[in-house]
């Protein structure tokens, strides 16, 4: 029960202090601490990362969505292929999906060249992979539930009945 509530708050903002989470849930700080530890050790919470709008920074970051088609055989399963790909640090996300292709892979690098080389030299040669289609990300409008617009200003009257 507590786990669900604490998890929701962490998903909303992982930088909420334990103290604030305690205030918002009516739990004791120690209980919040313990709940977070339990979520982490059970592998429910796998990490905490900042949501970055790269367009706001000088240094470029190249990201691509790569569609992968694979051909399985008796000895090789989806997870075998996934495990092999997921080990590369360039791979930011890897999902098995329904539809026209099998895997949806997010790749990140410092340049188009780096990302292209990674796909052509490390991914495409994997024997089970029959096809790759690489889509470079041009602009991101929303990531992890956060919109990248200018946001809505609070234009309410400052005091109202």
């Amino acid at each position: 029960m507590n786990e669900r509530e604490v998890l929701e708050l962490l998903r909303e903002n992982a930088r909420y202090s334990t103290e604030d989470i305690a205030r918002m849930t009516d739990l004791e700080e120690e209980e919040v601490e313990a709940t977070i530890e339990a979520l982490e050790s059970a592998g429910v919470v796998r990490g905490y990362r900042a949501v970055v709008d790269w367009d706001e920074l000088e240094d470029e970051r190249v990201r691509a969505e790569v569609e992968l088609n694979v051909k399985l055989d008796r000895e090789t399963s989806y997870s075998d292929i996934a495990e092999r790909l997921a080990r590369f640090p360039q791979v930011r996300a890897l999902r098995l999906v329904s539809g026209d292709y099998d895997f949806d892979m997010e790749v990140e690098g410092d340049s188009i060249r780096e990302v292209s080389q990674f796909v052509s030299e490390k991914v495409a040669p994997v024997p089970e992979i029959t096809q790759t289609v690489t889509h470079y990300v041009m602009t991101s409008y929303k990531e992890s539930g956060i919109e990248f617009g200018d946001g809505d200003d609070d234009d309410r009257l400052s005091v109202s009945p």
Binding site: R156, L157, S158, V159, S160, P161
Partner: peptide, 16 residues
Amino acid sequence: FEIAEERDDVISLGVG
């Protein structure tokens, strides 16, 4: 309302 509107550093918890 008038005082709050004049200043730009006000956090309003007066909004209904």
